[in-house]
Design a protein around this nucleic acid. Structure first.
Length: 509
RNA sequence: GGCCUGUUCGUCUAGGGGCUAGGACGCAUCCCUUUCACGGAUGAAACACGGGUUCGAUUCCCGUACAGGCUACCA
């Protein structure tokens, strides 16, 4: 049988795509590929108040960056369209009316003010948030309490109304979750959720069931926050399409921040990204940082996300997407939420930078260098530089700092460490070393080091005494990879030029 | 308040009736390197609590505590 795994979500009210969302997509993607099924992505676009310009494009850009493109979506099309909720309004209405006809739902005419009044009136210490449920629905204005004529009259006058599900009393609804096994609920404690809103648009509860049926979804993944409303969806399946056609549910554990469900706020507060890519809310102009711009490799991003709540049972922590596809299994997904640890996230990225070829790092690195007004024409040199410094880069954004001195002579020198010890002996040594350099024909790190140490020995200096001055002459400070490796990449002329410049400066003082 | 879910080092986790409870991140110390990293070695660090069941429970069961989620004409 054909498998169709779907993930469905709405952009957050302010736009953006957070860690939890990407992980849901990722697990969905991996599972679908593994089952050789289709991966379908639905994006809610129902609520005008919630719609954020650009949010949908943004989501697809993120998924493209992460390499998680769906087979079927509002963007990619597919056989089960239309995919936009606003274009499916009549479909939802049809099923909602059918539920009313069958006695599983009813019209409710209560105004927002009346609802508020109800919540106020029934509020007690025992029950701080009263719900529209079987205990109070008979006290409200709906087709259960009103006479048939009254209802007809109200409907013919186009009175604003919603359709609510009529939750049965005292029944147990249960289903098997792919991650947590059997979960059951008492229908008496679930409220009469709105299915169709006054504007004719469906709520999530109706839409998810109708769409999953019409789009032939076999597996549905979503966050754990949906678990409490699962009984509504199960009942809807039971009433409308039959439980035997219901997809298998998987409620993924939450990704937690320092206190509770990870939020955008946490990122701002603790200084780590929570979105896949940078996002600017077009309405407020507020910008939220993304993993991409922060300097993460998509491979690392996928890897760290996959391991937040899943492992293959071995000690392996670094996985390529192909390995994940092969080894991922829903049965090994945790049921408990996982706190996001940015330090570990950076470790994953560092590991990925170290194991990624310089040629693949090159485009991102040269873009970053260009931002610092450094344009490197020599591809080969850039590759060599990347190879030399990538071990010390945790984020892609570390590359400029680690490598600008290869392309630009230092503007400032940290002479403080060497100046007090600068004397005639050292001056003579460097003069001799520069002469030696000028004679070198084959400019290689190992040979330079050998030569350098020989000259030092002749001058009765320990290499250590002149190594640091050399480093500072070449790069300006106490940083960077091996000093002879730097010299080798700098080339003979540039190395000599930098040494002469620095020595002049050193003696002026 | 009610309902749902969860609980192994600070964090991510392995394990599952008898183990010196394993790994990783982070942290500390040492080695390498007369820069900083990388690398290597070592170390500190955990089964929430109380009852059962059992010859034996971290593991199974029940309670409690704690944490999180949900409790909208939002998803």
């Amino acid at each position: 049988m054909e498998k169709k795994v779907r993930v469905r979500f709405a952009p957050s009210p302010t736009g953006g795509l957070h860690l939890g969302g990407v992980r849901t997509v990722l697990y969905n993607y991996l599972f679908a590929k593994q089952q050789q099924g289709d991966f379908i992505l639905r994006i809610e676009d129902t609520d005008q108040t919630r719609y954020v310009p650009g949010a949908e494009d943004y989501i697809f850009n993120c998924l493209q960056w992460a390499g998680l493109e769906p087979d079927e979506s509002p963007r990619h099309g597919g056989p089960c369209g239309p995919y936009r909720q606003s274009e499916r309004k009549e479909i939802y209405r049809h099923y909602a009316e059918q539920l009313v006809k069958d006695g599983h739902a009813y019209y409710a005419f209560d105004t927002p003010e009346e609802l508020e009044q109800m919540r106020h009136d029934f509020k007690t210490e025992q029950n701080p948030s009263p719900q529209y449920d079987h205990t109070i629905r008979m006290k409200m204005r709906n087709s259960l309490t009103l006479s048939e004529q009254e209802v007809k009259a109200l409907l013919s006058q186009n009175t604003r109304h919603v359709i609510r599900i009529k939750m049965p009393v005292g029944e147990t609804v249960s289903f098997t979750d792919m991650i947590r096994g059997e979960v059951s609920f008492d229908t008496s404690v679930v409220d009469d959720k709105v299915l169709l809103k006054a504007d004719g648009m469906p709520t999530y509860h109706l839409a998810v069931v109708v769409d999953d049926y019409l789009m032939k979804i076999s597996h549905a993944f979503r966050g754990e926050e949906w678990l409490p409303s699962a009984p509504v969806h199960i009942l809807l399946w039971h009433y409308l399409f039959g439980l035997e056609n219901m997809p298998q549910w998987a409620h993924l554990p939450l990704i937690l921040g320092p206190n509770g469900k990870l939020s955008k706020r946490d990122g701002a507060k603790y200084g780590f990204p929570v979105f896949a890519m940078n996002w600017t809310d077009p309405r407020t102009g507020e910008r939220t940082e993304g993993f991409k711009e922060k300097g993460f490799l998509p491979e690392a991003f996928i890897n760290l996300l996959a391991l937040l709540g899943w492992n293959d049972g071995t000690d392996q922590e670094l996985f390529t997407k192909e390995e994940l596809q092969q080894k991922f299994s829903m049965s090994r997904v945790h049921s408990g939420g996982a706190k996001f640890d940015y330090e570990k996230a950076k470790w994953f990225n560092h590991e990925w930078i170290k194991r990624t070829e310089a040629t693949r790092l090159k485009p991102a690195v040269s873009a970053l260098l260009a931002q610092k007004d450094i344009v490197v024409q020599n591809d080969h040199l850039l590759e060599n530089v990347i190879n030399l410094v990538k071990d010390r880069c945790t984020l892609l954004t570390d590359f400029p700092e680690q490598s600008t001195f290869f392309f630009k002579a230092p503007e400032q020198y940290d002479f403080s460490a060497i100046k007090p010890k600068w004397n005639e002996a050292r001056q003579l040594f460097f003069a001799e070393w520069i002469r030696a350099c000028e004679l070198v024909t084959d400019w290689k790190a190992a040979d330079l080091e050998k030569e350098f140490k020989e000259i030092a020995a002749v001058n009765e200096l320990k290499p250590g005494e002149v190594l640091l001055p050399l480093r500072i002459m070449l790069v300006g400070g106490k940083f960077g990879p091996g000093v002879f490796d730097i010299a080798a990449l700098l080339g003979k002329d540039e190395t000599i030029k930098r040494m002469k410049t620095a020595i002049n400066l050193l003696q002026e003082r």
